[in-house]
Design a protein around this nucleic acid. Structure first.
Lengths: 128, 128, 128, 128
DNA sequence: GTGGTCTAGACCACC
DNA sequence: GTGGTCTAGACCACA
């Protein structure tokens, strides 16, 4: 897995898992890879994975059965969905609009780009 | 000036200056406040301001006349505009669309929010 | 390490690293000394080393793995070589020729000196 | 007059005058422009010109008649010539050769460039 | 007055 | 352990 330089790796791992849940690749009660497996797979220090898991556990998205592993919480998907929607409408969008205003970008341009984006969407669907 | 915790202060100062240029409060060939003045005004260490200025100089947005001060580059505004638009359409928007797709948000919802945003725009106009 | 007074220390450190790369003492993907180690080794403040590293990172000569250290970029050597050759032929040489013209020095004199220089080259080879 | 960012302006002014002398545009006992005139012509603070003149005076290249102005010293040209040749052969050339060695540039390449340079020399001759 | 560099030392996030 | 940021304070060269 490739990481962007900007964000902490443990955050990116947590996001990766959230996406898995949102896309229903991993569902409630399902066991997720052990910290060590994940660390090997991502070529990352186990501590870093542990931190990501711990973060998700604090958010009640996964839980730990001691000695067995980590599992997806019941209702995790709707909870993640909820949170991200809230963030989207309350933080991301207003910031976006401010930037549009500053750069003199009209909503119509966004719509045009959106149509373009939908066209090429098929390719993205395949990626994990 | 108030700084957000997320980003380094020197980045926020650079952004502040970029906004000044975009809004045409500061125009080409105009002298900007000296490092020390800016530091006092922003209640920040001069080194921090120096770092912001140095960053903008590397980006050819401002330039230095030895012993005199920093000045806005010719064509700074269009260059900043250019860069930020590019970033907006190539990085921000695609990411936004991906997130919308993931959360099942349709473009129509954005448009509704945009109308709301325009209503309350008056308040933002005042904030420098 | 000894520093010349003319140039800032952080530039001289960056040059030192560029030379290491050119001479293939440090090669692609190799880790370079940590900021603190380098600072101790050069008897310099860590901030000064950090500045040099940051400069080289901006030039895509080294990169950073978070929490691990700095590494030589893939293709760093050829890139440094490229840049310095360009500078040599486009800046240094023309300036040299202008000076020769001004002082009435002929190319033959350079060649004589060059032969002399080659003789005493052995000594230089030892210096890191 | 355009100044390069790297070097102090007063040094560049001094160099300008040295070149004038080397090219015999200004000869011994000739009066050079007053500090004020030079400052206006170069769009520079008079203090800066004064510093350049003072530097040249220290080097016995110009001298001052109080209340009248600055004049070129007897023997200034040969003295400047002498100094610059010495610097050329003892500082500039060795540094050049070291760089050539580092970049793997052979003397032959210099000679080729020199021929090219001589071709286009005519244009340079016109510039002051 | 201006900016540029450097030091010392602190604190923090990340791995 | 790693680097990143920031402060305080100093010194210097330059205009």
């Amino acid at each position: 897995m490739e990481f962007k330089g900007e964000q902490p790796i443990y955050i990116q791992i947590a996001d990766y898992i959230r996406r898995k849940i949102l896309k229903e690749k991993w569902s409630a009660e399902e066991r997720i890879p052990s910290i060590r497996d994940m660390a090997v797979r991502m070529e990352v220090n186990p501590n870093t994975v542990a931190r990501a898991y711990s973060l998700l556990q604090d958010e009640n998205i996964i839980f730990n059965k001691r000695g067995i592993g980590y599992f997806i919480q019941e209702g995790a998907r709707s909870q993640v969905m909820e949170r991200q929607k809230e963030e989207f409408f309350e933080d991301v969008l207003p910031e976006l609009f401010k930037k549009m205003q500053l750069l003199g970008i009209k909503l119509g341009e966004i719509e045009d780009y959106y149509d373009e984006f939908e066209m090429s969407e098929g390719a993205n669907e395949i990626i994990q």
